[in-house]
């Protein structure tokens, strides 16, 4: 059974790419298009890691991370933030919300996989 990964992004293109990259790397990706949708999916998932975008409608990445950390079973689940910015304050906000790490978009597949390895062991 391959490791479940929840990926949350409002861009269909990025979702498609995450899906492809994660599938090829042997993960079992689950995709959501915003934070609310992500939380819905999490009810039935125990992902090895979560990847989330920041700028999304309905519930953005910060709100999503915050909400995930409040769920007991996902308290220690690694969460990687997908961001086009590497601005320190953005990292700080993500960190404060409980993010494990970040991936700078556009991601290279191997770097994404590498980051997942960093947080999932």
């Amino acid at each position: 059974m391959s490791l479940q990964i929840l990926a949350v992004d409002d861009s269909r293109t990025i979702r498609d790419m995450l899906n492809l990259t994660l599938s090829q790397a042997g993960f079992n990706p689950h995709l959501a298009d915003d934070g609310i949708h992500g939380l819905e999916l999490l009810e039935g998932l125990t992902p090895g890691a979560i990847i989330t975008d920041i700028n999304m409608p309905r519930m953005d990445g910060f709100g999503f991370i915050d909400a995930v950390r409040k769920i007991e079973k996902h308290r220690a689940t690694p969460i990687l933030v997908l961001t086009t910015e590497s601005a320190p304050e953005l990292k700080k906000r993500a960190r404060d919300a409980g993010a494990t790490g970040w991936i700078v978009k556009p991601f290279e597949p191997k770097k994404l996989v590498r980051a997942l390895q960093m947080v999932t062991g």
Binding site: S2, L3, L20, T21, S23, Q24, A25, G26, F27, G48, P109, K110, V113, R114, L116, Q117, T120, G121
Partner: peptide
């Protein structure tokens, strides 16, 4: 913890992806 399957594939993974990106 037991590394997920992907650990073993790490080395050839990028190559495989950039050349024949077929979706299983």
């Amino acid at each position: 913890p037991a590394p997920p399957q992907i650990s073993q594939n790490t080395a050839d993974l990028p190559v495989r992806k950039s050349t024949v990106p077929t979706l299983p």
